[in-house]
Design a protein around this nucleic acid. Structure first.
Length: 344
DNA sequence: AATCCGGGGCT
DNA sequence: AGCCCAGGATT
C-alpha cells in the first residue's frame, strides 16, 4: 500500500545515502571526471548493461574516441566495431549521430542544459538527468531501475513499474528524499541499488537507510518492486551459409531494423549451382531477450572459381577472411562461429 | 500505451 | 527457466 507521505519530511534519507556514497562509492574510471562527453558515453554503455560486462568496452571506446570531435568524424562501422558483443546496437549508431549533432548544433561543445541534452539522439529522460546533474549541477533525479527498486522498497509502494507513468511517479517520490547535491545523489542511488538493494537477496543489514525502509521492517523486500509485464521469448529459425574459398568467406551488412542493426552476417541463401559444395551443417542455439534462435549453419566450400565469382557479382557480397573479420562487428553467435573456424 | 531491441549473470 | 540490468526509439 502507498504510505501517507503528507507529513514528516524524508530528506534525511537522501542525506544518509549521500554520506554512504562518500565512503563507499565504487572506484570506476568515469567517477574521476565531470567531462560530459565521458559521462554521456558511460551512461549509454551501461544502459541495461552491468558494470562488469561493459567496463572494457567503455575503456576501449574512450581510448579510441576520446572526445566528441573524434567520435563525430569516425566511420559508423568503426563505432559499431567498438560496440561488438555489447548488444542493443542502436546505441552505437545513435551516439555516433549524436556526436555529429553536437558538432553541428553546439559547435562541438557538449550542451549543458537538460532540454538540450535531451534532444541528442539516443538520450532519454534518464540519461539527460544523469549527465546534467553529474556534470552541470542539474536538479533532475536520474530515475532508472535502481530508483524503482530502492524507492518502492523504502515506501513499500506497489506502484507498477511496468506502468508507463512509473517514471513520473518515482521521480516525484525521489524528490521527497533528494538532497541539494543531486549529481552525487543519483550516483549514490545507483551504487546502493546495485550493491545493497539488489533484486534478489538484498543486503539490508548493510543498508544506510534500513531504519527508514518500510519493506525491510515488514520483511517484504521480495514483494518490491511490483512488475506486471511478462515477456515471453519466441522461437526464431535462421539459416546461414558460410561460403568460403581459399581462406576467404562472404559477408554482407544487415539493415538498421529488426535485430543486430547494421552488424555483418553470412549469406542467407545460395543458388542451386552452389548446392553441390555444401560440405556440412550444424545447428546453433542462441538466446536473445525476446527470442530463442535456432541457427542452421551450412558450411559451403566452393571449389569452382566461376560459381564463386558469379555469386559475389550478383549479390554484391563483401569478401573477407578471418583476419579481416576482426575489423567488423558480427552478432555473437556468428562471431563465435568465426572464432571456432580460426582454430582449424 | 505497447512493443521491440542483446548479451550476460544470478537464482 | 525466469528475471534483472546506469533505457530509448518506434508505432
Amino acid at each position: 500500500m502507498e504510505q501517507n507521505r503528507t507529513s514528516p519530511d524524508f530528506r534525511h534519507i537522501g542525506n544518509r545515502l549521500l554520506e554512504w556514497y562518500r565512503n563507499n562509492a565504487r572506484d570506476l574510471p568515469f567517477r574521476q571526471t565531470k567531462d560530459p562527453y565521458k559521462i554521456w558515453i558511460c551512461e549509454i554503455v551501461f544502459q541495461q548493461t552491468r558494470i562488469s560486462q561493459g567496463l572494457n568496452h567503455y575503456n576501449n571506446f574512450i581510448k579510441r574516441f576520446p572526445d566528441v570531435k573524434t567520435l563525430a568524424e569516425a566511420e559508423e562501422n568503426e563505432v559499431l566495431l567498438y560496440w561488438k558483443g555489447l548488444g542493443y546496437y542502436s546505441r552505437a549508431i545513435n551516439i555516433h549521430t549524436a556526436a555529429q549533432q553536437i558538432m553541428d548544433d553546439y559547435q562541438g561543445i557538449f550542451p549543458s542544459q537538460y532540454e538540450d541534452i535531451l534532444k541528442l539522439k539516443g538520450v532519454g529522460k534518464y540519461t539527460a538527468a544523469a549527465v546534467s546533474s553529474i556534470c552541470f549541477g542539474g536538479k533532475m533525479p536520474a530515475v532508472d531501475g535502481n530508483f524503482y527498486r530502492v524507492l518502492s522498497r523504502l515506501f513499500a509502494d506497489d506502484f507498477d513499474v511496468s506502468n508507463s507513468r512509473a517514471f513520473t511517479y518515482f521521480s516525484e517520490l525521489a524528490a521527497l528524499i533528494m538532497p541539494e547535491n543531486v549529481g552525487d545523489f543519483n550516483q549514490a542511488m545507483m551504487d546502493v541499488g546495485s550493491e545493497i538493494c539488489k533484486p534478489k537477496n538484498p543486503l539490508c543489514g548493510e543498508c544506510p537507510v534500513n531504519d527508514d525502509c518500510l519493506a525491510f521492517s515488514l520483511q517484504k523486500t521480495s514483494d518490491y518492486p511490483v512488475k506486471s509485464k511478462k515477456v515471453k521469448a519466441e522461437d526464431l529459425a535462421l539459416t546461414y551459409y558460410f561460403v568460403h574459398r581459399n581462406g576467404q568467406f562472404l559477408i554482407r551488412q544487415r539493415k538498421d531494423d529488426f535485430i543486430w542493426k547494421k552488424l555483418f552476417e553470412f549469406p542467407i541463401s545460395i543458388p542451386f549451382e552452389m548446392e553441390p559444395f555444401v560440405t556440412a551443417s550444424k545447428t546453433i542455439s542462441h538466446k536473445l531477450t525476446h527470442k530463442n534462435l535456432s541457427i542452421e549453419m551450412f558450411n559451403v566450400e566452393v571449389t569452382s572459381e566461376e560459381v564463386w565469382n558469379d555469386f559475389i557479382t550478383e549479390n554484391q557480397y563483401l569478401i573477407t577472411d578471418v583476419e579481416g573479420s576482426h575489423e567488423k562487428s558480427f552478432p555473437k553467435p556468428l562471431e563465435n562461429y568465426i572464432q571456432n573456424t580460426l582454430k582449424d
